[in-house]
């Protein structure tokens, strides 16, 4: 009896002594480095190049945020995460920001307690098969063996797609993209399925990319974007508006080439507000006036980041499609900087 009271008292004391956590931005500034969760290696989105430097479309988001907050696009500690470990890494505070082709879904946003800060790539799940199989539609895949990265929304979409079309399949769960590639190329599975952008990126690394085709069916909506923990809205705002700054920069015609010149002042007040020569947008969330300028200088505007990492002139060769600016019929649309 006495022991119970004693433990109870201890618990109460422990509860009362809980320290309040400081804001993520302060943590990042004290540390002098941004911990950014990325994939374990998906060429075009996030992968170390020959000299060990991380490059890619998602990496560019990390670098832009680091440039905006810390003033140095290189002040990023990249933490490779698998589809399975990414949410734990973010929830536990191991990473400040997760930019890892992560699909924005209701339950991840609400139930897993994350805040998605926008969409940097509108994607959908596709299928890749060897050309020699002669398959032209995903509905012909009855009885096929399908390689799939475990712990992703693609796993659930796949189950739903085959169920809805009343055809059978054999899932082969796989931990990373590299293992999936190995099994697919060895013929241990007939089909590899993941986001269409990921398929294109994977195919680009094959010896003979032309021997493999992407099937026309896109079976899901996969809005991929960076995400942060729930509850630190200031930090979420910084990540969100850094991304929008890149998108708005493309719309306004600000590029890494002319940003220096435009930041001397222009006749367009919105450009001036973004680049900090007018108003005090940066100050409002605790940064200096030139935050967006540095973010744009880190890797260029959204269009430049797209073109250098995954665009049509890269081996990955993705068209802008849904990811064009809203003015060009796409979905990339930044709210006004005002």
């Amino acid at each position: 009896m006495k022991k119970t009271v004693f433990i109870g008292a201890l618990t109460v004391a422990g509860l009362a002594a809980g320290a309040a956590a400081a804001g993520t931005m302060d943590d990042v500034k004290t540390r002098g480095k941004l911990n950014c969760g990325v994939t374990t290696g998906l060429v075009g989105f996030a992968a170390p190049d020959a000299s060990g430097e991380w490059k890619g479309f998602d990496v560019a988001v990390c670098r832009a945020v680091a440039a905006a907050v810390l003033g140095d696009p290189a002040a990023v500690e990249f933490v490779p995460t698998t589809g399975k470990t990414r949410f734990t890494a973010l929830a536990s505070g191991e990473v400040d920001l997760l930019a890892r082709n992560t699909t924005w879904t209701f339950s991840r946003d609400v139930d897993l307690k994350f805040t998605f800060t926008g969409v940097n790539y509108y994607d959908g799940q596709g299928f890749m098969v060897p050309k020699e199989l002669g398959v032209s539609s995903a509905k012909d895949l009855d009885g096929a063996t399908v390689c799939i990265q475990t712990g992703t929304t693609t796993e659930l979409n796949l189950a739903d797609f085959f169920r809805a079309n009343n055809i059978s399949y054999e899932p082969v769960p796989i931990e990373t993209n590299a293992e999936a590639q190995q099994q697919y190329l060895a013929g241990a599975c007939d089909v590899y399925t993941t986001d269409a952008s990921g398929l294109a990126a994977t195919r680009a690394t094959f010896e003979n990319p032309a021997d493999h085709v992407l099937l026309p069916e896109i079976i899901s909506k996969e809005p991929l974007g960076p995400l942060v923990r729930h509850g630190d809205d200031e930090w979420a705002d910084i990540v969100r508006w850094t991304l929008y700054a890149l998108v708005a920069a493309e719309e306004m015609g600000i590029s890494s080439a002319n940003v220096e010149e435009l930041s001397k002042g222009t006749n367009n007040p919105e450009i001036n507000r973004i680049l900090g020569t007018e108003g005090n947008l940066g100050e409002m969330f605790g940064l200096d006036a030139e935050w967006a300028k540095r973010a744009i200088m880190a890797g260029g505007n959204y269009g430049e980041v797209f073109a250098t990492n995954i665009g049509e002139n890269t081996p990955i060769g993705l068209a802008r499609g849904l990811n064009a600016q809203w003015k060009d019929g796409g979905l990339q649309y930044a709210p006004p900087f005002r």
């Binding site: 509860l15 796949l158 189950a159 509850g231």
Partner: peptide, 30 residues
Amino acid sequence: AWLISNTAQNLAALGKPIDFGFFGERSGYD
């Protein structure tokens, strides 16, 4: 006691109290 209370407190702060109700939900994977 400190470890347990710390965990419980942090989970409560995250809005994720311990709950095994998810077991009854549809799994959705094969």
